[in-house]
Nucleic acid binder design. Sequence first.
DNA 1: GCAATGACGCTCT
DNA 2: CAGAGCGCCATTG
Length: 107
Amino acid sequence: MTSATYARIYAVVRRIRRGRVATYGQVAQLAGLPGQARLVGYALAALPDGSDVPWHRVVNARGGISPRADTGWGDAQRALLQGERVVFAGDTLSLARYQWRPRRRAR
DNA sequence: GCAATGACGCTCT
DNA sequence: CAGAGCGCCATTG
């Protein structure tokens, strides 16, 4: 990875369970980078193919898939999510229903 | 080291 | 309801 910042982001995304999704802003906050959703997107964009990071479970604040460089991946992401029982309502999904709710690790 | 870019988010018009 | 603008920060030329 390119930096410790990315490592934090990846660590958070890896914790997302199957059938659940998280928003960029949410991941940013959990990674200790409140307000920097852009960095999350940037970090995911730098992810190598075949990484153990379920990047497809990360969507924007509307519950939709953000337009990336290669259009094919956007469609693939939607397909992957649907394969995990996540149903899309048009171009977006219901965050109220699928948003990931992480548990506090610290205790 | 400066300028431009980028898988976002929120507010205003 | 749709579009445009501004902020935030790391990576790259």
